[in-house]
Write a protein that binds this DNA or RNA. Structure first.
Lengths: 208, 208
DNA sequence: ATTATTACCATACAAATGTATGGTATTTAG
DNA sequence: CTAAATACCATACATTTGTATGGTAATAAT
């Protein structure tokens, strides 16, 4: 039995993963049909059977939204790491082939946030170490005191954010570095996002 | 309008959170009824209306499994912290009134794991600091090299685990502490669980 | 030429689901 | 005492959902 998915089956599977991993709940047949513009649930039904026969999903029969992914190996979900941060260096975003780490099922991303891997010891004063994964939310307004990732003159800064009248102060955890004070409309200042958390896997991983 | 939940409503809400955050998908009325031993969906239906009226959930009407939590302020979910670990001290498990932290939606617990807050600097050699949250999975067989939380002679140890023939070696990250070697059937040895991850919130929290 | 696979459609149906309504018993508040 | 809120039960019903069956058209395989 071939495990090879057809183009359409692949698209449907991707949509299932998107919904289950991203939105949190598996779609119904009708919802998938609507998403792909099918006039009929039966079409989806048949595609799902095909995908199931090829081993990519499992269906808890008769239960609504009973689609399970068989990909994930119970405790770890592959999540893309979009790039690397190292204070002082340019922000590296992997262009296409994204690196992935296995995040415990534990760690689920809200729709709009993403992961960056920390490189180097430049953040150790914030107790963030090389190899740690920082969770970045790009859609939140930074509040005073939050740690943000920003790009200033093509280099990454990871500092605590303080907004004053027309200026922004970026303060390092390490008191030896003095605060950076920049104008709100500084042309080369770009806020990447807010560091909402740090995650470190305790698994020993084959590190390149 | 009182936002105060009754005991039963609280239990149902907790079950909803457990299912949604832990299992990933919201339950149906029938499933909740079954879980609580109700003979009738309508009972659950009425409790959900009450809980919704008090503002804790939202229901996408007519949709199956359409229960959404409104608690989480979009990005944070309250999760119980079961206790505190500080290597060398007894394991403190908060008896009843559990402490809670706001975990980003990001951080979802697998069904059987729990959180402990690290106290003191005893784990700093493993780059785990006071205030960090460790994610413990009690249901995994420890593999060699994993960091485990265990209780030995009434004190907590947090060390790397290595199983030899009939002995267990517990090795500290800090090489100054020499390995503990104990018999597999040591009477006062109890494995609490495996540290599967560390999470640190970057929010400044009002710390007691 | 025939068969199998893929990709759709339509229709039908039982079971599951959310919702509505009415009822009873107990507790709480005025 | 009365009214309101709480915690259950039963029944009813329109939709939704998963599933089954049959059909059409296009393509690929034998």
């Amino acid at each position: 039995m071939s495990r090879q998915l057809t183009e359409i089956q692949k698209k449907i599977l991707e949509h299932l993963i998107d919904q289950i991993k991203g939105k949190g709940i598996p779609p119904t047949l009708a919802e998938v049909a609507r998403h792909f513009g099918y006039k009929n649930r039966a079409t989806v039904q048949q595609h799902l059977s095909a995908i199931e026969k090829k081993g990519y999903i499992r269906k808890s029969s008769k239960l609504s939204r009973g689609i399970e992914l068989t990909l994930e190996d119970k405790f770890f979900v592959p999540r893309p790491v979009l790039g690397e941060v190292a204070a002082g260096s340019p922000l590296i975003i992997y262009p296409d082939a994204i690196d992935t780490i296995d995040l415990p099922t534990i760690v689920r991303m809200p729709k709009d946030s993403f992961l960056l891997r920390v490189k180097g010891d430049s953040l150790k004063d914030a107790y963030i170490f090389s190899g740690d994964i920082v969770i970045i939310n790009p859609n939140l307004e930074p509040r005073n005191g939050q740690i943000v990732v920003a790009i200033l003159d093509d280099a990454v800064v990871v500092k605590r954010f303080f907004k004053k009248k027309s200026q922004i102060e970026l303060i390092s955890e390490n008191p030896e570095y003095k605060p950076m004070i920049i104008d709100k409309r500084h042309p080369s200042f770009k806020l990447v996002g807010i560091v909402v958390g740090v995650y470190r896997s305790m698994e020993k991983r084959r590190v390149g």
